[in-house]
């Protein structure tokens, strides 16, 4: 069971890749799919590793992703 989760607003993403690169547990990868503006948004490839640290949220210049820990 993952400690946390990330939520992605795909349509807001501009595909910079900051979240993918700097996720400490490598939860994300850029999707091959396009959003409606033609950008490749990230998707979750290893959700079980997510610690909910929200570093992706701090990096994301487009406010398109954030992470949080599950309430226990």
């Amino acid at each position: 069971m993952a400690k946390g989760f990330v939520a992605i607003t795909v349509e807001r993403c501009k595909g910079c890749g900051f979240c993918v690169e700097f996720c400490p547990t490598h939860v994300l990868a850029l999707s091959s799919a396009f959003n409606s503006k033609g950008y490749h948004a990230p998707h979750v490839v290893a959700g079980e590793k997510c610690s909910g640290c929200d570093l992706c949220g701090m990096y994301c210049p487009d406010f398109a992703i954030f992470g949080a820990r599950y309430a226990r």
Binding site: A2, F5, V6, A7, I8, T9, V10, E11, R12, S31, A33, N35, A41, H43, V44, G47, E48, C50, D54, G57, F63, I65, F66, A68, Y70, A71
Partner: peptide
């Protein structure tokens, strides 16, 4: 804005929100 999310292998709590949103228009 569409709140479309790609398929993810876990549930996102319904009240979850980006912490920056209250600070932004």
């Amino acid at each position: 804005m569409n709140q479309v999310t790609l398929e993810i292998p876990y549930e996102i709590p319904v009240d979850a929100h980006n912490p920056v949103e209250p600070f932004l228009r």
